[in-house]
Design a protein around this nucleic acid. Structure first.
Lengths: 163, 163
DNA sequence: GCATATGGGACTGAAACGGTCCGGTATACA
DNA sequence: TGTATACCGGACCGTTTCAGTCCCATATGC
């Protein structure tokens, strides 16, 4: 199905929610607001935190907040936080040394990487801001490459306030 | 992992192989040449046939051949033949009426479809010809190791020596 | 010190995946 | 017309992954 797992879906919903409502929020609140079961939401948020998409504050009055501004977080980051690196096939997964033993005759390896790259770029060109505030920069973010878009948008307050 | 299943990998290998060697080939031969286990290759080819990516000829001297010219077959067709429609999440899957019951507050549905579209387009822009004869397209040189491409390109009769 | 909230990991039932096998049917050719 | 060949359709099964829950350790604010 080439479908993204439910967990990843949750991750996008949660991250989008955080993008729309800035500041820190407890996992429990986020779970209630998004109607995602609380333990599951918590699990997802942990992964997002470990991947650096969100930052966490432990203890009382703690919670989660986006690690960067929504415009600076690509949807690919959210997806990769849950699913691991976007490696379309084992043989195109650089991290593992699982070697396609018939690489010589399949000759497809390099092409898979190209497919992989195409998908990766398509995903990275959609930011959390696009998700949270659709319509504002819809066409722009598609037309621009990630870097250009970033430069264009870079004019605001750099850090977020996690009180 | 957002990884495409092994079956789909096989499908691309087989389709690419057919693209490089035109004419009809028995499933058994294709399996041998690509070193994919025969029953599995057969299963994949059946799906490709049903999806209209390849055409099949039954009976003695039968086999499989591409349904169209390699340039006219997008890699997305091959993937969809195996994995079904590229629907990133259930809630963005139009075919099922599985309704995101908190659509009102998640508000992400339309965005998922946009992501979906981006991926779909990225995949459809790569044809089987690009896979079978890399180098004819300019983008390939980035990701290409070169060695395999040369071998593939120079293989005049691709069905024999590929072992 | 206590309530609150995240971190990490173990655990489980259900579903999907990878792979195989078999009976049925269509076709070429002797 | 008979037979070998080759695809068609689906059943089957062991393994892995997925979705979801639970528990305990740890950090923090009051």
């Amino acid at each position: 199905m080439l479908r993204i797992s439910k967990m990843t879906d949750y991750a996008v919903v949660l991250a989008t929610h955080l993008a729309a409502a800035d500041g820190a929020h407890a996992a429990r609140d986020l779970a209630l607001q998004t109607q995602i079961p609380e333990p599951t939401a918590s699990k997802v948020l942990k992964k997002l935190a470990r991947a650096g998409v969100v930052i966490s504050q432990r203890g009382a009055k703690g919670g989660y907040a986006l690690a960067r501004r929504p415009e600076q977080i690509g949807i690919n980051e959210v997806i990769e936080a849950i699913e691991g690196p976007i490696a379309v096939t084992e043989c195109s997964d650089e991290s593992t040394d699982s070697f396609c033993e018939y690489e010589t005759n399949c000759g497809v390896r390099a092409n898979w990487q190209r497919i992989n790259l195409a998908v990766h770029r398509a995903l990275s060109e959609i930011s959390l801001a696009d998700m949270a505030f659709p319509g504002t920069s819809e066409l722009v973010s598609i037309a621009l490459s990630g870097k250009d878009a970033e430069r264009l948008r870079d004019a605001g307050t750099p850090s977020n306030d996690v009180h």
